[in-house]
Amino acid sequence: MAYGIKVSKPGNSVFTAGTGDLFLDTTYPILKVKASGTGSLSITDGGSDSDTISHNLGYVPKVFIYGQVFSVFSGDKNDNYVRYPYYEESAATTSAFEYTVDDSDLVISGGYDYGGSSSNTFSYFYYLFYDEY
């Protein structure tokens, strides 16, 4: 016999409502936050930077990372946030902000090559969950 919790939206019977009419349905896993935080990558044109966040869960967890990027189309840092990974390429210019996650570490990295000498600091935030990838 299955056990769990269902909470339906107003006007819907919790016994018959479809998934879209339920506020909560523990038939499905709910993301559980293990850790979140912020950081920044300091990058000079042609170079890269990375940060390592250890989680030591022993398995690969789900993660979300959002941060600022360098746009090769505008030739400047974008102060708004996008979801990583993020890649741009135009002619001989490239920009890459990405991450890898394994059973012990989340590594957030970025770099750009615009053929200049600018230096920028790119802020990011991450969420790391107990839920397995």
Binding site: P29, K32, V33, P61, Y130, E132
Partner: peptide, 17 residues
């Protein structure tokens, strides 16, 4: 525990989005 929380669908003492 840190290693088995992935085996729970829901834990009310953990933050959820």
């Amino acid at each position: 525990t840190e290693s088995n929380k992935k085996n729970f669908v829901y834990l009310s003492d953990e933050n959820t989005p």
